[in-house]
Design a protein around this nucleic acid. Structure first.
Lengths: 209, 209
DNA sequence: ACTTCTAGATAGTTACACTATCCATGCGAG
DNA sequence: CTCGCATGGATAGTGTAACTATCTAGAAGT
């Protein structure tokens, strides 16, 4: 298929496709002559994945490139892919100085310990969580970390199912893509569902039915 | 306190504070003369809240303004504040055409029905979820919606605790701020913890210990 | 008195994600 | 065979968001 067809099927404008090609998000089509290339289903799938990560997952283009290039790493073990994808999603400028963050890290480490989780010490999420804790404390909500034990239990149940599901997807490529889709779209979905749950609980408590 | 002190304590540059004042995120200080104003603890707290929403919650400035102006609405019932804050966080351009979205909405409505949740039909999260479902289907992962029942159970447990906690914060202002902080920072924390849970499950399954 | 700080206004900067044009080809319908 | 329209590649431009810098006139502190 030529670029016009790719554009139509993925619902992405031709200039944007060219932009993604330039940025290395999308691999070039197979050249059939100096100014022709043909694209196939893999390009279409990749392009749809790109749009999903950007539109639904709100990932910046640079992060999408990172994530996708990890997917294309042929012989990376599944566990490591998960780590790299996860790390890419954390990409956030360290907004707290190290010494302030350290206070939060103690709580985070204790949390992980309490739940008996096996997590590498340099996992960026740990610092993200620490940052959230110090931020909440500064806002006068020191309690917030108390909710994290709840989150951990909920997340553990969720993760068990998700990892189980993903690892049964058959081909390696499917599994890897499943990890990305599950991580990114799942995160958006969980956030939305949590807010719905708030609405529900709040409706039951604070409105006369 | 004058602006320099506010800047120092909140760790936000003076030009940025002026920018927030212009944008209406921060209420002006009390004028003491033509070119002097004094700021108090409420300004400091508000400024810290702004930074937390922007840095941790990644909210755009326009959304922060919306959320904060809702907080300052004096006599809005708690349940409604939650709805408005929630809606502000959804602010995402509708990327799917209505007819395509409708297919996803059926699944979402069934999900809500199954769990017996009481949710207004026009809650924007419902469309967000629908968008995620159609997006996942297009990517060849029709299964993803299956995980949503899990998410719902987990979210219900979480929400019960959170709403209970927040409603015991004493003054109305504290409760309202608690809603915002809990919603936004909690979302970031839950996402991070979910990824940690993935790491943990994956580590146990795919690495020899 | 004199340096430093301040409010307010205006303009400039940086980063990001596209979008528009141009050109030299080359395919493909007539 | 030819002529219009699509294509790949390169370069430049656009719009938005979130600051950042400069300037002016006036006030504070020492």
């Amino acid at each position: 298929m030529r670029i016009a067809e790719l554009s139509r099927q993925a619902n992405v404008s031709i200039p944007t496709i060219k932009y993604y090609l330039r940025e290395g998000l999308l691999s070039p089509g197979e050249r059939t002559s100096r100014n022709q290339a043909s694209y196939d289903e893999t390009h279409l799938g990749r392009l749809r994945l790109i749009r999903a990560l950007i539109d639904v997952g709100k990932l910046p283009v640079a992060t999408v490139r990172e994530v996708l290039s990890t997917l294309d790493e042929p012989d990376m073990p599944l566990h490591e892919v998960l780590g790299v994808v996860s790390a890419s999603l954390c990409e956030r400028r360290q907004t707290e100085p190290d010494d302030v963050l350290a206070a939060g890290r103690e709580d985070v480490d204790a949390l992980i310990e309490r739940h008996g989780w096996q997590i590498a010490d340099d996992t960026p999420e740990l610092d993200v969580l620490a940052g959230i804790i110090v931020s909440a404390r500064r806002l006068g909500h020191p309690h917030i970390a108390d909710a994290f034990d709840n989150y951990c239990e909920a997340a553990a149940a969720i993760a068990e199912v998700e990892v189980g599901y993903v690892s049964e997807l058959g081909t390696v490529e499917n599994v890897l893509e499943g990890v990305v889709v599950g991580t990114v779209l799942g995160e958006a979905a969980l956030a939305a569902i949590r807010r719905l749950a708030h609405q529900n609980v709040s409706a039951r408590r604070f409105t006369e039915s």
